[in-house]
Design a protein around this nucleic acid. Structure first.
Lengths: 339, 339
DNA sequence: TTGTAGGCGTTATCAG
DNA sequence: CTGATAACGCCTACAA
């Protein structure tokens, strides 16, 4: 079965391609009669414009690219969800790539997307990203670009973020208000801005409530895994048995912490209180239920796409565009692990 | 910054577009000298072929479409992972759409992808899918097509599946071997083939071990949620307090079951044993750890893409292609909930 | 070894 | 109201 083209319709109707094209796009300067006959024939032949040709002509593909560190991750899959839903609403499709937290891969993927000539790119940096040349290339080529969650502050682009520092401050303050006197922090890797900010928020909260900051109470994840949570929990118990509160970079790791404590009959929240970050679905399902910081992931996706759309539209109409940053609200969710 | 084209290179070098094109594709009939100068200039101008033009010429986009019921789902996000990894290896990009378990959306999305002229489509049916016209349309248009997980047996296409019936048989048999005498089943919705097959496997196991099948012990999920798990657990306890084993359609629901039992101090596995399905990450992290059926999700993605690739290649070379079905192995994972 | 010419299918301009 | 013509950028017989 061959694809129908404008040409075929024109020939069978004995009119010109131009007229067919106009009729289908409902131009005003085509007679009702021709219009009708064209539309009818097109419908009966199931005509759909060849998108390759349209892309070439219009120089846009109505496709955007999305690069994230990991698909299999409650937070990111929710963001994906928000992005593709909003994109679809606006007639865009989404190509998804995964950097696996590797800078090398990330660079390659940026290039893939640029070569593909997507209309825009949305991205969350890998933990490994301490180099920005590939990102600068995106801007240099004037491809609409939005960063979310793990961003580079140095890059002038639209951004969708939460205030990690404030959120971490609140989480730590929550532990303090619940009576914790000696609070450890299991932080994320050194590069990502949000790991840095959460650490700073933790530190600030301690200072604010006049608790001495002790660098020995800070444990740094390399891979941000469940197993690291277990491991650090064990270390904390061994090295600082009097720690009575832990603020953990993210729920997955926090769940590892809980697992270790459960296995070793260390009572939560009586002996140690634990608070995570992200409000991963699992956190409300484990025992004890994990207190955490709610992060509006789906909404982040929606806002990211909308910012990108704004920029794509400006670019099309050759209107100057200035990047915007949207900061979404977070909230503390109190559950059993900090009662 | 404008994009470099073959034409520009040709003009600055004072040669024809054809020669430039050939030089860049390393044709043998171009002199080394011209070749070098072309390649050098192209590199310095960062030339990349305009993919829109290439698509139009070659009639392929090196892009495939993927439709799944839900992105935010441990199983599916793992499949996505496998597909995009394998696709990228082979020079393909992946557009992802989500049907939200709705037939209407699914139909629209199939159409979107066909109009986009993707080179192939991979799909897992929504629970709502009891109509196959949109799928038949894919085949009619001779677009390479692969189904995985939730498939329609009636459609002649390549498929990647597990043997749900056998896996369910094994899960139920596992409960029986552990001493369960009265086993309930919380099944999935009525449409999806895999829900049907798992139910049949459950029934077969009972028959095989001479346990009377009782339809009252079968509970049917509508939305396959955590809350449904809690609800059905409650009902089971109320209606059949002597049930001592439950085989649950999927881990998410099983976790709901555990939650209800935990809250009501019903001891697992002493009073009731529970086995889930899918080996969702969470199942090894909750208390008690959930026994389940391991389903090779990442691998399903990889195999799905490879089957699609096979078909796409055949189509290109006009070699006839006969659909293949790959059945992947599952295994019972025994944890605390069935000790 | 190089170049000419035609076409992929659509859209836009401009003339009739 | 209609249509001829020229792009968009690339590829590939076929000539020269």
């Amino acid at each position: 079965m061959k694809e129908t083209t404008l040409k075929q319709i024109a020939e069978t109707l004995g009119i010109s391609i131009t007229t067919v094209s106009k009729a289908l796009k409902n131009y005003s300067d085509v007679s009702e009669k021709t219009k009708k006959s064209v539309i009818d024939l097109a419908a009966s032949l199931q005509y759909t414009p060849n998108s390759f040709a349209v892309n070439l002509r219009t120089k846009e593909s109505r496709t955007i690219g999305l690069i994230i560190p990991e698909v299999v991750h409650h937070f990111f899959s929710n963001v994906i969800n928000g992005i593709i839903a909003e994109a679809e609403k606006n007639g865009y499709l989404v190509i998804i790539l995964q950097s696996n937290e590797s800078l090398e891969l990330e660079k390659k993927q940026v290039e893939l997307l640029m070569n593909k000539r997507v209309d825009g790119i949305i991205m969350s940096l890998s933990n490994d990203s301490n180099d920005e040349n590939h990102i600068k290339e995106i801007l240099k080529r004037e491809i609409p670009f939005v960063q979310f969650d793990k961003i580079s502050k140095l890059i002038k682009s639209s951004k969708v973020i939460i205030n990690d520092q404030n959120a971490a401050f609140d989480a730590t303050a929550h532990l303090i208000k619940k009576g914790c006197k000696k609070i450890a922090h299991i932080r994320g890797p050194v590069n990502p801005q949000n790991a840095i900010d959460r650490f700073l928020g933790y530190k600030k909260a301690l200072e604010h409530y006049r608790i001495a900051f002790d660098y020995n109470l800070v444990y740094t994840c390399k891979n941000v895994t469940f197993d690291e949570g277990k491991l650090f929990a064990e270390q904390i118990v061994k090295e600082h048995p009097d720690v009575d509160g832990i603020f953990v970079i993210t729920d997955l790791v926090a769940v590892g912490v809980l697992a270790h404590f459960n296995e070793n009959k260390i009572k939560i929240p009586e002996q140690v209180k634990v608070i995570g970050f992200s409000n991963w679905f699992m956190s409300q399902v484990i025992t004890p239920k994990l207190s955490t910081v709610d992060q509006p992931s789906y909404e982040m996706g929606v806002e990211s796409f909308n910012l990108l759309l704004e920029e794509m539209n400006c670019r099309k109409d050759i209107i100057p565009f200035s990047p915007r940053t949207i900061e979404l609200a977070t909230s503390i969710i109190e559950r059993d692990s900090t009662l």
